[in-house]
Design a binder for these strands. Structure first.
Lengths: 250, 250
DNA sequence: TGCAGTCTGTTCGTTGCCGAACAGACTGGT
DNA sequence: ACCAGTCTGTTCGGCAACGAACAGACTGCA
């Protein structure tokens, strides 16, 4: 590939990028760049979190595993957010797990440092609270979507949400993975994806999905995608006053 | 009825009851006792919240109404919590609605006063953040439950959660209401409730459900009930250091 | 006492998804 | 170039929940 590779910078995470220099500088020394390979579990159920993660190019899925072994995603986190809410909200553990759904990079902040940074107050605290609120919206909408919408609609939603966090329109995910994210059978995804491909909205081959007609996907999607997107934009618009400067290198 | 009626006191709300006197006193003058009749909408979607509500004897349902008209509960709030998270988390509105599901009383705090009280910091802030975290757990578990568990399991969960917040084992709720909470058809509830009655776990008549065998309900329930209950207890146990004193009158 | 309104019980066909099982197809490593 | 491992396509029966429609039963108000 000939695309110029920009080395990940903390500024690629929207929350970090929104901090004024006075708050960002002391934090930046504590942030640690880490690779986030597909499938890596950042934390499991009831497990003491060691770090908070600020994804830059990766996507993390928050999900819960039922006693029967089935699972379901409750929310996902990309460069617009942070994984490890419970470190500053309190409790230090969750009943859910966090697993990397799309490989990439991210910055992590050690547990105590995360807590300390939050307790300083300032804009960071405000941003983190806003983000938590947007996470609430996402989870609530997932609950509703699971109840009322079809697998095809949910597939569209999932694809669009992933697409929003990817630089290209090529997603690397197997149907197996998509099925486990949505908490449905793999065959269900095969059928739904087959329909979308037949209608020219996507095209895929073994673990790669190319979105051909984004508007078409949105049309076939349920309202949930739009609701979450608008709400997140609204919640964070007046705190994220700074766009991530594209040329800032570390 | 011969039961002595204890006038609601702010201490009947667990969050308020947990505050040390120094924090509670200034707040108590700002709290306003309000009746919360069945069906009252505390706020609707994208509507500016005017108050935060601390239920004492009432139960409030947070839910979302889909474009098709169907709805689904994402979480419910009783005396263990507060309605109006977004006042202190930021954003001031939500895409969901809050409706009184079980009539009773509660205390409300005006919008600005709520924000101010949160921003003071102190134990109140810590408690509210912990509670928000427990709400996240509840929503996540609802999402999972909607995906994987049967109507009967979810009915048991809903009954148990309501029961935990009621003084007696007699719930006042119609099948119609239960159906709209769970986001399923009324007939589905009729059948499921019929089964539970046949097996001697509950008995009901026109809007009244008496729980006869609590352990039996738990056995037929999905894991979600227990997960949420344990997690909420854990999250709030070390901040709610004071039990609500039973004899405190206003 | 009657009646309207609401709540509950039951039916029937339909549908979306599950569970299991298997065949073909692609990919990467040796 | 092969082969093991993984991913995808397709089949089948089965079931839980849906949607619509209606009959009976209870309650509270007039």
């Amino acid at each position: 590939m000939s695309a110029t590779f920009t080395f990940p910078s903390p500024n690629q995470n929207h929350l970090l990028a929104a901090l004024p220099p006075g708050e960002f500088e002391p934090l930046s020394a504590q942030l640690e760049l880490v690779a986030m390979p597909l499938g890596k579990m950042l934390y499991g159920p009831d497990e003491q979190l060691q770090h908070a993660y600020f994804p830059t190019t990766s996507i993390v899925s928050l999900h819960y595993i039922v006693e029967s072994g089935a699972s379901a995603e409750t929310a996902s986190v990309g460069s617009e957010g942070v994984v490890g809410i419970s470190l500053f909200m309190g409790g230090d553990t969750t009943s859910s797990s966090a697993v990397v759904q799309t490989a990439g990079h991210g910055y992590r902040l050690e547990r105590r440092l995360m807590k300390a940074a939050f307790n300083v107050g300032g804009l960071l605290q405000k941003i983190l609270l806003r983000y938590t609120q947007s996470l609430l919206t996402q989870m609530a909408q997932t609950a509703v979507c699971n109840r009322h919408h079809t697998v095809e609609q949910q597939l569209c939603r999932s694809l669009l949400q992933t697409l929003d966090r990817m630089p290209s329109s090529e997603l690397v995910m197997t149907q197996e993975l998509l099925a486990s994210l949505l908490g449905v059978r793999r065959e269900g995804i095969t059928v739904a994806a087959g329909n979308l491909q037949r209608d020219g909205l996507i095209s895929y081959r073994r673990g790669h999905i190319a979105v051909l007609d984004r508007a078409g996907l949105e049309a076939r999607c349920c309202e949930c995608y739009g609701v979450v997107k608008r709400e997140c934009a609204r919640l964070l618009s007046d705190v994220l006053y700074r766009q991530p400067p594209p040329s800032t290198r570390r």
